[in-house]
Write a protein that binds this DNA or RNA. Structure first.
Lengths: 143, 143
DNA sequence: CCGATTGGTTGTGGGCGTACAATCGTTGTA
DNA sequence: TACAACGATTGTACGCCCACAACCAATCGG
C-alpha cells in the first residue's frame, strides 16, 4: 500500500486533492443554495440550450429525475422550457440571465485552485498544466 | 471562461479527471456492495483501530451516523467493536480479516489510474508525481 | 463526592439521488 | 392510416447521508 508505481501515486494524489483536501462541492451547494447536481445542470446549459434528453445524458440521470431538476431550476427562474420547434415532443432548456449569474458564481468557486497550486513556480506550473491537459484529452477519447 | 491562468486550468483538468472522466466511486460501491462512505470508513481502519470519535472526524460524519456505519460494517463481519481499555466509554473499531480483503479490493479499484496516465513517458510521469506529491503535502498543512 | 463533560446509541425528520411503472402527446414507419 | 418508438411527466419506493434531540454509561474536575 505504501510503495506504488509513479502513475498510481500521482493518481492517488490527484484524488486526494480533489475529493478531500480541496473539495469544493459542498462549498458550491451552500453558496448557491441548491444541490451540486443542479449546479452541474446549470453549467451544462451555459454553452447552448439542451433538450432534456441531452441533459439526462450529460448528468447521467434518468428522464424522470431530469424533469424534476428542470422543474426546480425553472421555479427558481434560472432556466426556461421551450418547445423544440423541430420536434414538438422535446423541450429545449434554456438558461436565463439570472441562471447565468448563478452558474458563474458556482464556476468561480469550483475553479479556484488550492493555494499551493497557485504558488508553484511558473515553469513547474506550465509543465503540470500541459500534462494534465493532455491527460484530459486522452481520457475524453477513451471513456 | 475559456481563457484561464495555468493554475485554474490545471485545477479544472484535475477535477474533470477525478470527478467525471475517471470517477471510481460508483465502481467501488458496486464492486463491494456498499456505499462509498462505508468503503472509506473501512480504508481508514486499515492502519490501526480507531475510536468512533476518531472515525467521525476523518469521515466528517456526526456521532450518530458513525454509529450506524459501524453497525453496518459490524453486521457484515468487516469490523469489530472493542471496549477501549483506557476509557471504557469509547469503543475501538478494529478491522477484521475479511474487512481487510474488502478494503484491499476497494483500494485496488480506486487507485487504478486512468490508462492515459500510465502511458506517460517516464520523465513526464516522474515530474507530475513529484509536483502532485508536494501539492498534497502543502494542502495537508493548510486546510 | 457531585455535577459537568464526553463517547456512544437510538430515533426522527428531511433532502437528495436512483430506479421503476404508467401515462400522454408527438413523431417515424410499415 | 395504424403501430411502434420516442420525449417528457407524474408518482412510488427505496437507499444514503445529514442534522438534531434525547438518553445512557463512564470519566473528569472542582
Amino acid at each position: 500500500m505504501s510503495e506504488q508505481d509513479p502513475a498510481t501515486s500521482a493518481w492517488t494524489s490527484m484524488r486526494r486533492l480533489v475529493l478531500e483536501l480541496h473539495d469544493r462541492r459542498g462549498v458550491v451547494s451552500d453558496a448557491i443554495g441548491m444541490s451540486y447536481l443542479r449546479a452541474k445542470a446549470l453549467s451544462r446549459l451555459t454553452a447552448r440550450p439542451l433538450s432534456q434528453r441531452e441533459l439526462s445524458a450529460t448528468l447521467m440521470t434518468d428522464a424522470p429525475y431530469t424533469s424534476v431538476i428542470v422543474d426546480d431550476l425553472e421555479q427558481r427562474g434560472l432556466v426556461r422550457r421551450e418547445v423544440n420547434p423541430a420536434d414538438r415532443r422535446s423541450k429545449l432548456v434554456r438558461i436565463t440571465t439570472s441562471g447565468r449569474a448563478v452558474a458563474r458564481k458556482a464556476h468561480r468557486i469550483q475553479s479556484a485552485p488550492p493555494p499551493a497550486l497557485a504558488e508553484l513556480s511558473a515553469p513547474e506550473l506550465a509543465a503540470l498544466e500541459a500534462t494534465l491537459r493532455r491527460l484530459v484529452e486522452s481520457a475524453e477519447d477513451t471513456p
